[in-house]
């Protein structure tokens, strides 16, 4: 147990526009931590020396955290790409000291390792066992605290209400933590007409070590055009409502250590959008500094495993789950519209199964189609 102040940080990747937007914040010494998606450099042939030096500078101060994108935690099949991802994490962790490593909840819909987007899986003992095994492998590779991020997307209200509890059961064996993404939470509050006080209590708040804030977008439903869906697209300014959620959530998370502002570089191509990003950061930091000044000592648990982890051999897999994931991915990526996807799902092996497709919200199935088709060619 140690005592710390909450640190304000930014997502920091090898992206010109994101770095251009962040540079004035670095120069004014405002950035207190950076979060690097260490598995997104697969297309880059050479990492500039200055980027390595930037990572090292934050790493040496215990202010570098890693956020994976592509691991596909719940894939029913254990793949050579996942083993390569772990080998890569092990190498990178030997070169940089990460304060913690995180990944996304869900499985990737893409046809290969670097395509698709994470979407949810049934909350069963089988998926729980696979998720726990994969988290143990990540922890063994990086030798630092490991956490998972709550998903923005859910198929049904029942799934939204059970997400926090399932996350807690997943991370418990590695004594892990969660990233509470407040824009993801905002999406669920809006898309399922929930109130903050009820939903926030469904999460293990003493397990929150990191918070994300970001912007997103509204999308009209094709099923009923007057109905809008909130999407976690990371391509706009942080909404006022998310700053409000941050103010409300800070006092509830006694082990919080980092708050990170996320935005995609593709949305930072104008001076105006870059200035808005800087103002969002300054506003986020102001909220955190105010909270820090009123709360002198924040206890921080280490979130390291309480006992040494022995990895499962053979690696737990589920051929049936994998087949269902491939089938679902194909339906989502290739259906022309919601009605075609619905017909295909009811003819598929997911019908009358633990996926409970019969309970899926029509708007969320439509959203799943849009997410899968947006990212099927990769990021």
């Amino acid at each position: 147990m140690s005592v710390s102040k909450i640190r304000s940080g930014v997502s920091c990747n090898l992206d010109n526009q994101l770095l251009q937007a962040t540079l004035p914040l670095f120069a004014s010494e405002k950035v207190e931590a950076i979060e690097w998606s260490f598995d997104t450099l697969y297309k880059v042939r050479e990492i500039p020396d200055w980027f390595v030096e930037l990572l090292r500078a934050f790493s040496q101060e215990g202010r570098l955290i890693g956020h994976g994108v592509y691991f596909s935690l719940f894939s029913g099949k254990w793949t050579t790409e996942q083993q390569r991802w772990l080998d890569h994490l092990r190498k990178v962790s030997a070169n940089f000291k990460f304060d913690h490593i995180t990944e996304h909840f869900g499985f990737m819909t893409g046809e290969d390792f670097h395509k698709g987007a994470p979407i949810s899986v049934p909350y069963t003992s089988e998926t729980l066992a696979i998720g726990i095994d994969r988290l143990q492998r990540i922890q063994e590779a990086c030798s630092c605290p490991v956490g998972l991020e709550n998903l923005a997307f859910s198929y049904s209200l029942d799934e939204v209400q059970r997400h926090g509890e399932f996350l807690e059961r997943l991370i418990e064996p590695v004594n892990g933590f969660i990233i509470l993404d407040l824009h993801n939470l905002y999406c669920q509050l809006q898309n399922f007409s929930l109130d903050f006080e009820t939903l926030i209590r469904a999460y293990p708040l003493d397990r929150v070590r990191e918070i994300h804030i970001s912007g997103g977008s509204w999308e009209s439903s094709g099923i009923r055009p007057e109905r809008t869906i909130r999407r976690d697209t990371h391509d706009d300014a942080v909404p006022e409502a998310v700053f409000d959620l941050l103010r409300k959530t800070l006092p509830l998370c006694k082990n919080l250590k980092f708050v990170i502002l996320e935005q995609l570089g593709i949305a930072l191509h104008t001076m105006e959008s870059q200035r808005q990003f800087q103002m969002d950061f300054e506003r986020m930091q102001s909220i955190i500094h105010t909270f820090n000044s009123r709360n002198q000592s924040i206890s921080v648990t280490d979130f390291l495993p309480k006992e040494s982890i022995s990895l499962n051999e053979p690696v737990p897999e589920s051929a049936k789950l994998y087949e269902q994931q491939v089938e679902l991915s194909s339906i989502l990526e290739h259906s022309a519209d919601y009605n075609e996807a619905l017909r295909s799902l009811h003819r598929s092996s997911l019908a009358h199964s633990s996926w409970e497709i019969e309970k899926w919200s029509p708007y969320m199935l439509e959203t799943a189609l849009r997410i899968a088709q947006k990212w099927k060619q990769g990021w």
């Binding site: 010109n16 770095l19 251009q20 540079l23 670095f26 120069a27 010494e29 950035v31 207190e32 931590a33 500039p48 020396d49 200055w50 980027f51 030096e53 930037l54 500078a57 934050f58 101060e61 202010r63």
Partner: peptide
């Protein structure tokens, strides 16, 4: 966090020349 002026210069140059 304070970064060295040489690192800030290197990032600025690196980003500006893409």
């Amino acid at each position: 966090m304070k970064l060295s002026s040489s690192l800030l210069q290197a990032i600025t140059l690196g980003v500006s020349v893409a």
